[in-house]
Structure formats: C-alpha cells, structure tokens
Write a protein that binds this DNA or RNA. Structure first.
Length: 302
DNA sequence: GTAAGCGAAACGATTACGTCA
DNA sequence: ATTGACGTAATCGTTTCGCTT
C-alpha cells in the first residue's frame, strides 16, 4: 500500500490547506482525514468505490430504506456520502447519491476547498433536484478534472433574478421555509437562494454606504463653506472694532432668529426691538447620527 | 440564576468565474 | 485572440443568538 496524502491542494503548503479546511472537520470529517492518509486516490477508488457502498446499497434495495450502521460507515473513509446518514434516504435517492460520490471524492481529496457540511448540503439538495447540476458537470468536456474544487459559477437567468428581487423587496431575510419554497420555485438549491440573499444584502448595504458617503461629503463641504464665511466675518468685525474704539460701548445687542419666518430680531438692552431681514440663514444639514453611525444607536446614543 | 458549550444562521471579506468592451 | 474591468456567485472564517446542560 502506497502512502499518499490526499488532503488539500498539492500546490499549496499543507498547513494552509489544513487551516482552510479546519472548520470542515465536524461531523466525522476528521475520520476521513486520518484514513485518507493511508491510501492514495487510485487505491481508494479501487478499494472502496465499487465495493462497499454499492454492496451496501444493493443490500438495501429490497427495503424502503437502507440501513448502514456506524461500523459499516467506518469502511467508507473517503466517501462524504457515507457521513450523511445514507440510511435516511430512500433507495433511489441513495443511488443518485452514489453517482455523486466519485465527484465529491475527487473534489475533496484532490483539490478540496469545500467542507463536509457544504458537500452534505449539496448532496441532499442535488438529490432533491434530480442531480441536474451533476449531469451537466459530468458532460462538460472541457473539464480535465471534475471536482468540487473547480468552482462552477452558475449564472442566474433574468427571470430567476427578477423573482429573487421581488422576493427581496418583500423581505430581505428568509426563514428556512421561505428559502426552500423559493428554491423549489426557481429550481435552485436552497443554498444558492441563501447566498443570493446574503450577497443582495451586502450590495444593499454597500449602496447605502455610498449614498451616506456622498451625503456626508456634501454636508462637510457646506459646513466648510460656512466656516470660511464666519471666519471672514469675524475678521471684518475685529477690523471694525480696531478702527472704532467706541464699538463695544454701545448697549448689548442680542440677535435672535424667528424659526418660522427666518427673520432676525435685534434686541438692545433698552428693550427696543427691530425686526428686519438680515440674511437668510444657511440651513445646516440635518444629520441623523444613528443612520450614519450605527454605533451610536448600539450604545444607546441618539 | 448563570456560566459553558453547542449548532445554526448571518455577516464581512475575499476569491474566482463569466461577460463585455 | 487577448486583456482588463466589472458584476456577482460562491467560499471561508468569525460573530451572534438561541437553546440545552
């Protein structure tokens, strides 16, 4: 038996591959890892592909469901399918799952960026979709290596996108029921719907950030203008004060602005008020701090 | 009542694929 | 035919939340 290490992308340092897959070792993935060290891919294919799983499946063909106990599962170190609880699937679905197995095997053991959980999800979901995706991948002549490490990007159709958009308008998050229903309606995997909504939320947030940025920029420019104007006014007043020594000896004057008509009234200490339009007030931008700085609201500031 | 552990879901950051100019 | 920019589907690692022990 040849010792072969089939975990991770050979072109990358082992440590990196291992780190990337760290979270994938839940649900029995670590068993797979350890046993995978003992066999190279070819041997694994020869030893396990057509024997154990298929035997187990044929054993279960006469019953509604296949029973695979834990001991038997341990014979199938490189088949993620074996970790899925195959015994939950009706026979015909297991057969479909078996067709997927070698692809998962290649993808996971040779290139593998994907974790067990995702593979599990896909198996379950692909089975639900009559393995359409897999048929397509398998018939793709351009692929030297059919594996999940080759990230195939599905382009959603216009109708699918439009439907998702409509759905997003109604609710930007999905509960599991809605997700499954939407996926079924659009012939997509629930995971795809989930990802679409995640990305859509991210896009919305990004767009909002851009809008906020532009608004803040305008506010900043307005305030800078106002600041310059006031500085200039201050200089003029100082100059006036220096040229007229009696300037400050006049009775104290209070400037108040009527909020409704924006007129400024000057009130001297003698009580004689005079209303006149001095200057239309420059409206300061109204900034809702919580919308720009979510952290304020988080800590209870308003 | 509460701290610890766990799983699921959501998120931000990033990668990688497909398209178009 | 090639290339770079761009939009976006998909992935990865982390955080948050609710539940259980």
């Amino acid at each position: 038996m040849e010792l072969g290490l089939s975990l991770g992308d050979p072109s990358k340092p082992l440590e990196k591959s291992f780190k990337k897959q760290k979270t994938s070792f839940k649900n029995g993935g670590f068993d797979f890892c350890i046993m995978g060290l003992g066999l190279n891919n070819q041997e694994i294919e020869e030893n396990y592909r057509d024997n154990d799983i298929d035997d187990l499946i044929s054993e279960g063909e006469n019953s509604d469901e296949i029973e695979i106990n834990n001991q038997e599962l341990n014979l199938l170190p490189l088949s993620p399918v074996s970790r899925l609880g195959l015994n939950r699937f009706p026979v015909e679905e297991v057969t479909s799952a078996n067709r997927l197995r070698s692809q998962f095997h290649l993808g996971f053991s040779v290139g593998g960026k994907r974790g067990f959980e995702e593979i599990e999800n896909d198996v379950v979901e692909e089975i639900g979709n009559d393995v359409v995706e897999v048929e397509r991948a398998a018939s793709d002549d351009d692929d030297d290596e059919i594996g999940l490490s080759n990230r195939k990007k599905l382009r959603l159709s216009k109708q699918q996108s439009a439907f998702l958009e409509d759905s997003f308008k109604e609710h930007s998050t999905l509960n599991p029921k809605q997700k499954v229903a939407l996926a079924k309606q659009l012939s997509l995997r629930p995971r795809q719907v989930e990802v679409w909504f995640q990305n859509r939320r991210a896009r919305t947030k990004l767009k909002q950030t851009e809008i906020d940025y532009e608004y803040m920029k305008r506010c900043s420019e307005t305030l800078a203008d106002e600041n310059r104007r006031l500085q200039k006014e201050l200089q003029e007043l100082r100059a006036l004060k220096n040229s007229n020594p009696f300037y400050m000896q006049s009775p104290a004057t209070t400037l108040t602005m009527c909020p409704s008509c924006e007129r400024v009234s000057t009130t001297t200490s003698t009580g004689n008020g005079k209303i006149g339009v001095v200057r239309k007030a420059v409206p300061f931008p109204v900034i809702n701090r919580s919308s720009f700085f979510p952290i304020f609201s988080k800590f209870g500031f308003s």
